[in-house]
Protein backbone atom coordinates (compact mmCIF):
# COMPACT_ATOMS: atom_id res chain seq x y z
CA UNK A 1 0.00 0.00 0.00
CA UNK A 2 1.37 3.36 -1.02
CA UNK A 3 0.39 6.81 -0.10
CA UNK A 4 0.16 9.31 -2.90
CA UNK A 5 1.69 12.65 -2.32
CA UNK A 6 -0.72 15.43 -3.10
CA UNK A 7 -0.01 16.98 -6.49
CA UNK A 8 -0.79 20.43 -7.62
CA UNK A 9 -3.87 19.14 -9.40
CA UNK A 10 -5.20 17.12 -6.50
CA UNK A 11 -4.38 19.57 -3.79
CA UNK A 12 -7.30 21.56 -2.43
CA UNK A 13 -7.33 25.20 -3.43
CA UNK A 14 -5.36 27.35 -1.09
CA UNK A 15 -7.39 29.39 1.30
CA UNK A 16 -7.24 33.10 0.77
CA UNK A 17 -4.62 34.75 2.95
CA UNK A 18 -6.01 35.60 6.34
CA UNK A 19 -4.00 38.05 8.40
CA UNK A 20 -3.07 36.46 11.72
CA UNK A 21 -4.71 38.26 14.62
CA UNK A 22 -2.40 40.15 16.87
CA UNK A 23 -0.70 37.78 19.39
CA UNK A 24 0.72 38.51 22.73
CA UNK A 25 4.45 37.91 23.30
CA UNK A 26 3.67 34.79 25.29
CA UNK A 27 1.47 33.43 22.54
CA UNK A 28 4.15 34.12 19.95
CA UNK A 29 6.70 32.31 22.08
CA UNK A 30 4.30 29.42 22.47
CA UNK A 31 3.83 29.10 18.74
CA UNK A 32 7.56 29.44 18.21
CA UNK A 33 8.08 26.42 20.49
CA UNK A 34 9.86 28.39 23.18
CA UNK A 35 7.68 26.88 25.90
CA UNK A 36 8.82 23.55 27.26
CA UNK A 37 12.36 24.83 27.28
CA UNK A 38 15.11 22.68 28.73
CA UNK A 39 15.24 24.59 31.96
CA UNK A 40 11.80 23.33 32.87
CA UNK A 41 13.49 20.04 33.61
CA UNK A 42 16.06 21.64 35.90
CA UNK A 43 14.40 20.68 39.21
CA UNK A 44 14.11 17.07 38.16
CA UNK A 45 17.61 17.09 36.73
CA UNK A 46 18.96 18.60 39.93
CA UNK A 47 17.31 15.90 42.00
CA UNK A 48 18.59 13.15 39.74
CA UNK A 49 22.04 14.70 39.90
CA UNK A 50 22.05 15.00 43.68
CA UNK A 51 20.42 11.70 44.49
CA UNK A 52 21.98 9.54 41.84
CA UNK A 53 25.13 10.98 40.34
CA UNK A 54 26.40 12.86 43.37
CA UNK A 55 25.97 9.79 45.54
CA UNK A 56 27.78 7.73 42.93
CA UNK A 57 30.53 10.34 42.80
CA UNK A 58 30.95 10.09 46.58
CA UNK A 59 31.18 6.32 46.18
CA UNK A 60 33.78 6.91 43.52
CA UNK A 61 35.72 9.09 45.94
CA UNK A 62 35.69 6.41 48.62
CA UNK A 63 37.08 3.92 46.13
CA UNK A 64 40.35 5.86 46.36
CA UNK A 65 40.42 5.65 50.18
CA UNK A 66 40.91 2.98 52.82
CA UNK A 67 37.72 3.90 54.69
CA UNK A 68 36.49 1.12 57.01
CA UNK A 69 33.15 2.68 57.81
CA UNK A 70 34.45 4.27 61.00
CA UNK A 71 36.14 7.61 61.36
CA UNK A 72 37.87 9.55 58.60
CA UNK A 73 38.97 8.12 55.27
CA UNK A 74 42.57 8.21 54.09
CA UNK A 75 43.38 8.79 50.43
CA UNK A 76 45.27 5.79 49.03
CA UNK A 77 45.24 6.61 45.32
CA UNK A 78 44.70 3.62 43.07
CA UNK A 79 45.84 1.08 45.65
CA UNK A 80 42.38 -0.46 45.87
CA UNK A 81 42.22 -1.00 42.11
CA UNK A 82 45.72 -2.46 42.08
CA UNK A 83 44.67 -4.82 44.89
CA UNK A 84 41.57 -5.83 42.95
CA UNK A 85 43.51 -6.82 39.88
CA UNK A 86 46.13 -8.64 41.98
CA UNK A 87 43.57 -10.54 44.02
CA UNK A 88 43.31 -14.15 42.81
CA UNK A 89 39.72 -14.48 44.04
CA UNK A 90 38.73 -11.61 41.76
CA UNK A 91 39.70 -13.54 38.65
CA UNK A 92 37.29 -16.28 39.65
CA UNK A 93 34.55 -13.77 40.48
CA UNK A 94 34.94 -12.01 37.13
CA UNK A 95 34.93 -15.32 35.27
CA UNK A 96 31.80 -16.48 37.11
CA UNK A 97 30.07 -13.16 36.49
CA UNK A 98 30.75 -13.32 32.76
CA UNK A 99 29.77 -16.99 32.48
CA UNK A 100 26.49 -16.40 34.30
CA UNK A 101 25.72 -13.27 32.28
CA UNK A 102 26.46 -14.80 28.88
CA UNK A 103 24.64 -18.07 29.52
CA UNK A 104 21.74 -16.17 31.05
CA UNK A 105 21.43 -13.82 28.06
CA UNK A 106 21.54 -16.60 25.49
CA UNK A 107 19.35 -19.19 27.17
CA UNK A 108 16.76 -16.85 28.70
CA UNK A 109 16.28 -15.06 25.37
CA UNK A 110 16.15 -18.19 23.24
CA UNK A 111 13.64 -19.90 25.52
CA UNK A 112 11.67 -16.69 25.98
CA UNK A 113 11.49 -16.19 22.23
CA UNK A 114 10.41 -19.79 21.65
CA UNK A 115 7.65 -19.42 24.25
CA UNK A 116 6.59 -16.14 22.67
CA UNK A 117 6.40 -17.70 19.21
CA UNK A 118 4.47 -20.66 20.58
CA UNK A 119 2.00 -18.52 22.49
CA UNK A 120 1.66 -15.68 20.00
CA UNK A 121 -1.47 -16.44 18.09
CA UNK A 122 -3.00 -19.83 17.54
CA UNK A 123 -3.03 -21.69 20.85
CA UNK A 124 -6.39 -21.41 22.61
CA UNK A 125 -4.95 -21.58 26.11
CA UNK A 126 -2.24 -19.05 25.32
CA UNK A 127 -3.47 -16.44 27.80
CA UNK A 128 -3.43 -18.87 30.69
CA UNK A 129 -0.02 -20.19 29.69
CA UNK A 130 1.35 -16.67 29.41
CA UNK A 131 0.24 -15.93 32.95
CA UNK A 132 1.74 -19.15 34.26
CA UNK A 133 5.05 -18.47 32.53
CA UNK A 134 5.17 -14.88 33.68
CA UNK A 135 4.24 -15.64 37.30
CA UNK A 136 7.81 -16.38 38.49
CA UNK A 137 8.86 -12.90 37.39
CA UNK A 138 6.71 -11.25 40.05
CA UNK A 139 7.99 -13.50 42.84
CA UNK A 140 10.76 -12.40 45.16
CA UNK A 141 14.04 -13.66 43.80
CA UNK A 142 15.16 -14.43 47.35
CA UNK A 143 12.06 -16.50 48.05
CA UNK A 144 12.46 -18.38 44.78
CA UNK A 145 16.12 -19.00 45.52
CA UNK A 146 15.40 -20.41 48.97
CA UNK A 147 12.78 -22.74 47.49
CA UNK A 148 15.30 -23.99 44.96
CA UNK A 149 17.87 -24.33 47.72
CA UNK A 150 15.64 -26.95 49.29
CA UNK A 151 15.11 -28.60 45.92
CA UNK A 152 18.84 -28.86 45.30
CA UNK A 153 19.69 -29.94 48.87
CA UNK A 154 21.27 -33.30 49.63
CA UNK A 155 17.94 -34.61 50.87
CA UNK A 156 16.00 -32.41 48.49
CA UNK A 157 13.40 -33.02 45.83
CA UNK A 158 15.80 -33.31 42.91
CA UNK A 159 17.85 -36.09 44.45
CA UNK A 160 14.64 -37.81 45.57
CA UNK A 161 13.33 -37.65 42.00
CA UNK A 162 16.56 -39.05 40.62
CA UNK A 163 16.38 -41.90 43.10
CA UNK A 164 12.76 -42.57 42.22
CA UNK A 165 13.61 -42.99 38.54
CA UNK A 166 16.65 -45.14 39.21
CA UNK A 167 19.29 -42.52 38.58
CA UNK A 168 21.03 -42.68 41.94
CA UNK A 169 24.39 -42.25 40.25
CA UNK A 170 23.31 -38.77 39.20
CA UNK A 171 22.63 -37.70 42.76
CA UNK A 172 25.02 -35.17 44.21
CA UNK A 173 25.24 -32.25 46.61
CA UNK A 174 24.31 -29.83 43.87
CA UNK A 175 24.99 -26.58 45.69
CA UNK A 176 28.31 -27.77 47.11
CA UNK A 177 29.59 -29.22 43.87
CA UNK A 178 32.16 -26.86 42.33
CA UNK A 179 30.91 -27.69 38.84
CA UNK A 180 27.18 -27.93 39.33
CA UNK A 181 26.60 -25.16 41.84
CA UNK A 182 26.90 -22.43 39.22
CA UNK A 183 24.65 -24.43 36.89
CA UNK A 184 22.03 -24.58 39.62
CA UNK A 185 22.20 -20.82 40.07
CA UNK A 186 21.88 -20.20 36.34
CA UNK A 187 18.92 -22.57 36.21
CA UNK A 188 17.07 -20.54 38.84
CA UNK A 189 18.00 -17.27 37.19
CA UNK A 190 16.76 -18.44 33.80
CA UNK A 191 13.62 -20.08 35.21
CA UNK A 192 12.58 -16.89 36.91
CA UNK A 193 13.30 -14.55 33.99
CA UNK A 194 12.09 -16.46 30.97
CA UNK A 195 8.63 -14.99 31.52
CA UNK A 196 10.05 -11.48 31.24
CA UNK A 197 11.79 -12.09 27.94
CA UNK A 198 8.68 -13.89 26.68
CA UNK A 199 6.53 -10.85 27.36
CA UNK A 200 8.99 -8.53 25.64
CA UNK A 201 9.06 -10.77 22.58
CA UNK A 202 5.28 -11.07 22.58
CA UNK A 203 5.11 -7.28 22.45
CA UNK A 204 7.59 -7.33 19.58
CA UNK A 205 5.67 -10.00 17.70
CA UNK A 206 2.51 -7.94 17.97
CA UNK A 207 4.15 -5.34 15.74
CA UNK A 208 4.89 -7.80 12.93
CA UNK A 209 2.02 -7.56 10.40
CA UNK A 210 0.36 -10.90 9.91
CA UNK A 211 -0.12 -10.02 6.23
CA UNK A 212 3.64 -9.97 5.67
CA UNK A 213 4.02 -13.47 7.05
CA UNK A 214 1.08 -14.68 5.00
CA UNK A 215 2.48 -13.06 1.87
CA UNK A 216 5.85 -14.71 2.48
CA UNK A 217 4.12 -18.05 2.97
CA UNK A 218 2.18 -17.60 -0.29
CA UNK A 219 5.48 -16.84 -1.98
CA UNK A 220 6.74 -20.22 -0.82
CA UNK A 221 8.95 -19.18 2.11
CA UNK A 222 9.60 -21.93 4.61
CA UNK A 223 8.84 -21.49 8.31
CA UNK A 224 12.51 -20.78 9.03
CA UNK A 225 12.72 -18.30 6.13
CA UNK A 226 9.62 -16.50 7.36
CA UNK A 227 11.11 -16.31 10.87
CA UNK A 228 14.54 -15.24 9.62
CA UNK A 229 13.51 -12.66 7.05
CA UNK A 230 10.11 -11.43 8.21
CA UNK A 231 9.73 -11.94 11.97
CA UNK A 232 13.27 -11.28 13.19
CA UNK A 233 13.68 -7.91 11.48
CA UNK A 234 10.31 -6.93 12.89
CA UNK A 235 11.19 -7.79 16.47
CA UNK A 236 14.70 -6.36 16.42
CA UNK A 237 13.84 -3.61 18.93
CA UNK A 238 12.45 -6.24 21.29
CA UNK A 239 15.65 -8.25 20.91
CA UNK A 240 17.69 -5.17 21.83
CA UNK A 241 15.58 -4.53 24.94
CA UNK A 242 15.43 -8.12 26.13
CA UNK A 243 19.11 -8.87 25.64
CA UNK A 244 20.17 -5.61 27.28
CA UNK A 245 17.96 -6.22 30.31
CA UNK A 246 19.12 -9.79 30.74
CA UNK A 247 22.76 -8.82 30.25
CA UNK A 248 22.60 -6.14 32.93
CA UNK A 249 20.70 -8.43 35.31
CA UNK A 250 23.15 -11.23 34.64
CA UNK A 251 26.18 -9.08 35.31
CA UNK A 252 24.86 -7.87 38.63
CA UNK A 253 23.39 -11.19 39.83
CA UNK A 254 23.37 -11.28 43.63
CA UNK A 255 20.19 -12.57 45.29
CA UNK A 256 20.30 -16.04 43.82
CA UNK A 257 23.98 -16.53 44.66
CA UNK A 258 23.72 -15.27 48.23
CA UNK A 259 20.61 -17.29 48.98
CA UNK A 260 21.72 -20.54 47.39
CA UNK A 261 25.47 -20.82 47.89
CA UNK A 262 26.77 -17.62 49.46
CA UNK A 263 29.43 -17.64 46.75
CA UNK A 264 30.68 -21.10 47.67
CA UNK A 265 31.85 -23.72 47.58
CA UNK A 266 35.23 -22.07 48.01
CA UNK A 267 34.32 -19.19 45.72
CA UNK A 268 33.04 -21.41 42.89
CA UNK A 269 29.95 -19.22 42.52
CA UNK A 270 31.33 -15.91 43.69
CA UNK A 271 30.40 -12.99 41.46
CA UNK A 272 31.54 -9.39 41.50
CA UNK A 273 28.37 -8.39 43.32
CA UNK A 274 28.78 -10.96 46.09
CA UNK A 275 32.42 -10.02 46.59
CA UNK A 276 31.39 -6.36 46.81
CA UNK A 277 28.88 -7.27 49.51
CA UNK A 278 31.30 -9.42 51.49
CA UNK A 279 34.22 -7.02 51.38
CA UNK A 280 32.05 -4.01 52.19
CA UNK A 281 29.52 -5.22 54.69
CA UNK A 282 31.05 -8.37 56.18
CA UNK A 283 34.62 -7.15 56.44
CA UNK A 284 33.98 -3.41 56.67
CA UNK A 285 36.36 -2.59 53.81
CA UNK A 286 34.22 0.19 52.43
CA UNK A 287 36.97 1.75 50.31
CA UNK A 288 37.85 -1.53 48.67
CA UNK A 289 34.18 -2.35 48.23
CA UNK A 290 33.55 1.01 46.57
CA UNK A 291 36.41 0.33 44.16
CA UNK A 292 34.91 -3.06 43.39
CA UNK A 293 31.51 -1.46 42.80
CA UNK A 294 33.06 1.02 40.41
CA UNK A 295 34.72 -1.83 38.57
CA UNK A 296 31.43 -3.70 38.35
CA UNK A 297 29.70 -0.56 37.05
CA UNK A 298 32.39 -0.20 34.41
CA UNK A 299 31.80 -3.82 33.36
CA UNK A 300 28.06 -3.31 33.07
CA UNK A 301 28.32 -0.04 31.13
CA UNK A 302 30.86 -1.39 28.66
CA UNK A 303 29.04 -4.68 28.14
CA UNK A 304 25.62 -3.05 27.79
CA UNK A 305 27.00 -0.42 25.41
CA UNK A 306 28.69 -3.05 23.30
CA UNK A 307 25.56 -5.16 23.23
CA UNK A 308 23.41 -2.18 22.27
CA UNK A 309 25.85 -1.29 19.52
CA UNK A 310 25.61 -4.78 18.05
CA UNK A 311 21.84 -4.96 18.10
CA UNK A 312 21.48 -1.43 16.68
CA UNK A 313 23.81 -2.19 13.84
CA UNK A 314 21.79 -5.24 12.93
CA UNK A 315 18.65 -3.18 13.06
Amino acid sequence: MTIKKPTAESAPPAAPHQPRPAESRAQRRFHAGDYGSWWWALPALAMVFCIHYLATAFGGYYSFTDWNGLGPATWVGIDNFVAIFNDPQMAGAVRNTLVIAIVFVVVANVIGLLFALALNRTLKSRYLLRVLLFAPVVLSSLAVSYVFRFIFAQEGALNALLEAVGLESWQRTWLADPTWAIVAIMTVLIWQNVGLTMVIYLAGLATVPQEQEEAAAVDGASMWQRFRHVVMPGIQPAVAIATTLTLVNGLRVFDQVMAMTGGGPFGATDTLATVVYRETFAFGRFGYGAALSLTLTFFVVVAAGFQLYITRRKH
Binding site: A176, D177, P178, G264, P265, F266, G267, A268
Partner: peptide, 11 residues
Protein backbone atom coordinates in the same frame (compact mmCIF):
# COMPACT_ATOMS: atom_id res chain seq x y z
CA UNK B 1 36.12 -21.04 53.23
CA UNK B 2 39.37 -22.95 52.92
CA UNK B 3 37.92 -25.92 54.81
CA UNK B 4 34.99 -25.82 52.38
CA UNK B 5 37.53 -26.09 49.60
CA UNK B 6 39.28 -28.99 51.32
CA UNK B 7 35.98 -30.86 51.68
CA UNK B 8 35.19 -30.41 47.98
CA UNK B 9 38.76 -31.01 46.87
CA UNK B 10 39.05 -27.54 45.34
CA UNK B 11 42.14 -26.47 47.24
Amino acid sequence: AGIQGLLTGQT
